[in-house]
């Protein structure tokens, strides 16, 4: 199954492999973690304690346990992030494929809609939506989906346009395949890696935007999420009181999730576009053969050609070095 090669390849690629492992661990942690810690909403101890043995991450301005808040906050944050990712990918794929494949007036209307949503800044729009909608997880998911679908739709539409003119799609039309089969069975599987990467991108966006909204105080302030953790930290004057432990663990966790997701996308990029890595491999091989040269000698990845049939030839090495200096 050649077309699924990229799936096994992203498991081979070190970047996406470690990204996947990291995200799997974090999700696992978010699932079982809440059963292992104290109640994060309860005021248990003296406020603003620095990390100590009874509270590994210290306590908040309200005397809550920071470790518990960080772990319990992971669940809703990740859940909203992934749900928005899935919803946006579904909507974006639907709109993008329909616009790209059907063309004509439908395409023009949908494209105009996509472009309008792309240029209206998402966060301010999300802010006024959040201000008017009742607070809660559902509102948050709806708001983020509403403000985030356009990018995916645009990317999928572009890809559909390039696939639409492929002969295998025309062949399917010619033998009389119905529309839904052409879209779902012939077209969509070719976008699997693209859908995955836009899903990951959207998830990163959704987590960031959600945390941002909650940090502003828009959202369910009674629940424990990474966003509300930061909101309360700021509210309790964590900066003035120098209680760095109240916001550092949550921020690091957010970054860890974002980084893990970005790693998966890096790997996916490298797998689907081998050009991005071919130079690295090439350099490693040349170095392994005993060529030491400044990076610059291989400018635009090629042009300095080495006669390594005679690796000891001082002439060849010299020319390599000289070429390098020209570039430096």
């Amino acid at each position: 199954m050649k077309h699924l090669k990229w799936l096994s390849a992203i498991l081979d690629n070190p970047k996406s492999k470690y990204g996947l492992i990291l995200i799997a661990l974090l999700v696992l942690f978010a699932c079982i973690g809440p059963f292992l810690v104290v109640d994060p909403t309860q005021s248990l101890a003296r406020p603003h304690q620095a990390p100590n043995l009874s509270h590994f991450f210290g306590t908040t301005g309200q005397g809550q346990d920071v470790l518990a808040q960080t772990i319990v906050g992971a669940g809703p944050t990740l859940f909203i992030g992934f749900t928005v990712g899935i919803l946006v990918t579904l909507i974006g794929a639907l709109v993008g494929v329909l616009a790209g494949y059907l063309g004509g007036l439908i395409d023009e209307l949908l494209t105009a809609l996509i472009n309008v949503f792309l240029v209206i800044p998402g966060l301010p729009l999300a802010i006024i939506l959040a201000a008017y909608l009742p607070t809660g997880m559902l509102s948050m998911i709806l708001i983020l989906t509403f403000t985030g679908w356009a990018w995916t739709a645009r990317v999928i539409r572009a890809q559909t346009l390039s696939l639409r003119d492929k002969d295998f799609i025309k062949s399917a039309q010619v033998i009389g395949e119905p529309l839904w089969r052409i879209l779902i069975i012939e077209l969509l599987p070719h976008m699997a890696s693209l859908l995955l990467s836009t899903f990951i991108g959207t998830t990163i966006y959704a987590i960031g935007a959600q945390v941002g909204l909650e940090f502003l105080g828009l959202g369910d302030m009674g629940s424990v999420t990474w966003g509300t953790n930061l909101y309360w930290a700021a509210n309790d004057q964590a900066l003035l009181t120098r209680a760095w432990w109240t916001y550092v663990p949550t921020g690091l966790s957010i970054a860890l999730v974002g980084f893990a997701l970005a790693l998966i996308n890096f790997g996916l990029d490298e797998v689907t576009n081998p050009r991005l890595t071919v130079d690295r491999i090439w350099r490693h091989r040349l170095q392994a053969m005993g060529y030491t040269f400044s990076r610059a000698s291989v400018y635009i990845g090629q042009k300095q050609v080495h006669d390594f049939s005679q690796p000891s030839s001082p002439q060849a090495l010299e020319s390599a070095e000289k070429g390098g200096n020209d570039e430096a």
Binding site: I281, V298, Q302, K303, V305, H306, S309
Partner: peptide, 16 residues
């Protein structure tokens, strides 16, 4: 491309 030395990686001139 070899004669012009504009080979793209991972190609290299390995002799001649």
């Amino acid at each position: 491309n070899a004669v012009l030395r504009t080979l793209n990686p991972p190609g290299v001139i390995s002799g001649g």
